[in-house]
Design a protein around this nucleic acid. Structure first.
Lengths: 229, 229
DNA sequence: TTTCTCAAAAGATATAGACATAAGGCGTAA
DNA sequence: TTACGCCTTATGTCTATATCTTTTGAGAAA
């Protein structure tokens, strides 16, 4: 076969990284590139589309294609389920339900999850262990108005995250990362000192506009979220 | 025109989210789908390829395509330059170089950056302010073996990040996020209390296998990194 | 039974050609 | 001069067809 779109992509990328195509400079159009590579325009198109997608080049109809002045640095972050995360570390995973209770939503949570005045929530507290050591503390609230079957479910053996993923797999979500100081309770669960800096993720999940669940995931001391790009 | 790949993608996604196609179930092959949508195979292929890329479905030659049991949750995280990040918040950005000095690399850094025994580094400490308030503390080391011109450069006015991005734009990098306790120095710079939990990013950057720079970015108290998916 | 080989199946990609769409730029009219 | 509108151009997408590659499963051989 002739030249592949990967080869075209690699060659263009090489030209850019080696400075043959300067940042900000504009590139030949697809027809000319196809001619010079001796391939079809669709092949060049795919290569260029992926480069644009990677934030390396910028494309506009009629205006043409140019090398980005400041390439967009982006990473893909996989949001793992904690059990898988731990097993990928090569450690044994253990889950424990600490506390589970249906209750009226407290005010701060009502505001945060945009619940109605008399909506009830299922409040779950769980622990996740890696090789027997505390790994993550999970504080979760599930909107029983949106997901009443959660109240009947027994979370002793499988975690709420896994249950939710298999029950309402295709949701919208917002995730945020930040640092918190361990309070006495968390310090106790995670076997650290009160006041320690801990990495925390918060996630809110919607299904068709309805808030399903809000969760705070507090990681053990020293946890890092690492990515390549 | 006929049906677009976006419409095909949207329709398949709808079938999956609405439960017409159950997780784990296998889908018709491209030829059949193209026939049923009344479009070319390439159109279906693009729709399916993007769905696979989004982690919704799983494709294997010969085995066919199936809906993922556990859809991969992934987000794209843009790594912004701090100046842009602050200006996007609608705040005024100010930069200050606190300290800059070329020195032999300390042992811990030599190990971390994989430097040779007598490599020298440029150690820079900078502050980034949003509307006059401390936003981010930057502690950076640049490998002078790989980038000797850094020693001559004056970092008083533009930050090392911006300079690096414009000098060596296309690099490989590893980024990691975690929580740290503010020590006395950092607390002073970021105007917080010693012991406060702070969000910190560490980034190491390579160009063609050579370590270029290592940086610790410590954010002001309460900083959050937020993403939708 | 187990292992190896090979053919078929399904996705992956290339091609040539066509039309669609967005937007820059020029010409014309106010 | 300015504003509007058309024309051109570059990218975006679709079609129809063909070939390539990977993987699986069946059948042959050990």
């Amino acid at each position: 076969m002739s030249i592949t779109y990967r080869e075209v992509k690699a060659d263009i990328l090489r030209q850019i990284t080696q400075g043959e195509l300067a940042p900000g400079s504009s590139m030949p159009n697809e027809v000319d590139l196809a001619a010079s590579y001796g391939c079809a325009r669709a092949t060049v198109n795919r290569a260029m589309r992926e480069l644009a997608d990677d934030g390396i080049i910028e494309r506009r109809r009629k205006a043409g294609t140019r090398v980005r002045l400041n390439p967009i640095r982006q990473v893909r972050l996989n949001i793992p389920i904690v059990g898988q995360e731990i097993e990928e570390l090569g450690a044994a995973y253990r889950y424990a339900l600490v506390h589970g209770q249906a209750e009226p939503a407290p005010n701060w949570l009502r505001a945060r999850m945009a619940l109605k005045r008399d909506d009830r929530v299922l409040h779950l507290t769980c622990m996740h262990y890696a090789d027997g050591a505390p790994y993550q503390h999970e504080d979760r609230w599930i909107n029983l108005g949106a997901l009443p079957e959660a109240e009947q479910h027994d979370f002793s053996d499988i975690g709420p995250n896994e249950w939710l993923v298999s029950t309402v797999p295709f949701t919208e979500a917002q995730i945020s990362f930040h640092a918190v100081q361990a309070d006495a309770t968390i310090a106790d669960y995670l076997d650290c000192t009160e006041g320690d800096a801990l990495f925390q993720a918060e996630r809110m999940t919607w299904l068709e506009g309805q808030t399903i669940t809000f969760v705070q995931l507090t990681y053990r001391r020293g946890h890092r979220l690492t990515m390549q790009y």
